[in-house]
Design a protein around this nucleic acid. Structure first.
Lengths: 158, 158
DNA sequence: CCCATATTGTTAATCTAGTAAACAGTTTAT
DNA sequence: ATAAACTGTTTACTAGATTAACAATATGGG
């Protein structure tokens, strides 16, 4: 019964695969692209720069002063328990203050400091530079299209 | 010097913000979209289904039988140390086998089992269904465009 | 051949991001 | 007044990933 060997190995049959299944999935390509952009963000902002989520939080606090922590968590799409450390870091760096609100003694309104506003301005410029450099092979039109399509994915939720 | 109060609070000045800075950044929108798709993937594949990365690994093993662990890690863009647990899980479920290669006693070639191939077929169908449902508000053209643009981001690296 | 260098799979330690559950204090609604 | 809901917080936990080290093995140069 020499014909029953099941472990025949055809060695290099990669040539049989025209296009890998994975490339057909949006989720896979989305993740790969996200990992690249996120890694470059960190590289660009450096050792003592902001992590992406801290930058995002600061951005919203600067643009929505007096936002509440729960509100900020909702905007970011994370749990409010997870926001505590982020706000701690920003407050520790002197970029925002937790302030109490007259009408409601539960909430802590988040107010950017002057330093927070100027530091955010610099960080935003650094992030813009990082994206411009990393995505240099996309035209402005392509970037706009990409944003619109990503927005459509987000619009499907809520 | 009554004019030096720095803590004036304008309360609801959200109306001053036309469009939040964050929305201008590709990285932010990429992450938000990725989180949505990834969460739906897990929901769709259920409790004992595959995590995205395990599905990806199985996909590549089925399509590139006899791929080596190092090779697979390179394809997935992760460290080979991180791949061990993934391959352990797939082997534990009886979906692939680690086999030794005649020429080189270091490597473990990964070969899908028959069960592995059929289970992968079903999983792939489930993933396709999940993406079709989740991304129903994108046309085929839009999906193709999105894939192409994500591919361009990946092409920037390598 | 010998020796330095590199590669493979693996383990262990560590880090980050994030969730879930519980909580005390406070507010809102019935 | 009492129940329900909300806010910020802590704690415990999970998933994903990286780094460094290691033994076994392979490769290339003298």
């Amino acid at each position: 019964m020499a014909s029953l060997r099941k472990t025949d190995r055809h060695a290099e049959d990669e040539t049989l695969v025209e296009t890998p299944d994975l490339e057909e999935f949006i989720g896979y390509n989305l993740k790969r692209a996200y990992v690249i952009v996120q890694a470059d963000f960190r590289r660009a902002l450096g050792e003592d720069g902001f992590a992406p989520r801290v930058f995002s939080a600061l951005s919203l606090v600067v643009q929505y002063p007096n936002v509440t922590q729960s509100g900020l968590a909702r905007m970011l799409g994370i749990e409010r328990s997870g926001l505590v450390a982020i706000v701690d870091e920003l407050e520790g760096r002197g970029l925002l203050k937790r302030t109490n609100v007259p009408g409601d003694r539960r909430v802590q309104a988040l107010v950017p400091t002057d330093k927070g506003k100027s530091v955010y301005g610099e960080a935003r410029a650094a992030v813009r530079a990082h994206e411009d450099r990393l995505l240099a092979n996309l035209s402005l039109d392509e970037k706009a299209t990409l944003m619109a399509l990503l927005g459509k994915i987000r619009a499907g939720e809520e």
